[in-house]
């Protein structure tokens, strides 16, 4: 059984809302940096930046922050391929918004916070996610959420983005094969 959580229009709406909330929380786009967590977090960060540019007329720096080497499950899960990290500006004293597709255990975000310290000391770090599915294992919460989805451990959430997957769609289904969400 696969159920649809977000249709393309829902996704656009959710990201637009997140962009507005970021502007509101940050009182504008000054000193703002968006860092996506590869792979889909980077694409989402770019979309949010584009929306911010439409609303505010300013270009917000967007980058990528690979957290593979900072994970705490490197020895227990299959070997992960690393991804590119690209921090385009000095983050010292900035407001960094981490962007990811799905917030689940919180371990990826924990790793991202560790990774971030190697690039400097931001004034503030915020977290934006498209889906929050619950089941946190660490004291971490998102500041900006596209949609809250109560889910079971046995379910898998699949986020598709047109830039990578050809269409925008978020679905939930019973988990059948191995691999992390």
């Amino acid at each position: 059984m696969t159920a649809t959580l977000l249709q393309p229009a829902d996704m656009t709406r959710a990201l637009t809302r997140i962009a507005h909330e970021i502007l509101e929380g940050n009182r504008g786009t000054s000193d703002l940096v968006l860092l996506g967590i590869p792979t889909r977090g980077v694409t989402l960060a770019k979309r949010i930046a584009a929306t911010l540019a439409q609303i505010d007329g300013t270009e917000v720096p967007v980058g990528a922050l690979d957290v593979t080497m900072y994970r705490d499950d490197l020895m227990s899960n299959p070997t992960r391929a690393t991804a590119q990290t690209d921090v385009p500006v000095d983050i010292e004293g900035k407001t960094v918004v981490l962007v990811d597709d799905v917030l689940y255990s919180g371990r990826t975000v924990r790793a991202a916070l560790d990774a971030l310290t190697n690039f400097g000391r931001p004034e503030t770090v915020r977290l934006a996610v498209l889906i929050d599915r619950g089941h946190r294992q660490l004291p971490i919460r998102a500041d900006y959420v596209g949609k809250n989805v109560p889910s079971a451990h046995s379910e898998r959430i699949n986020v598709r983005l047109s830039e990578i997957d050809g269409n925008d769609l978020v679905t939930i289904a019973e988990h059948t094969s191995g691999g992390a969400a």
Binding site: M69, L74, M75, S76, N77, P78, T79, R80, A81, T82, G179
Partner: peptide, 14 residues
Amino acid sequence: LFTVLTGAKGDVHE
């Protein structure tokens, strides 16, 4: 070293 020392099953996860 990263490749041989991490991973439970030794295969590459995308």
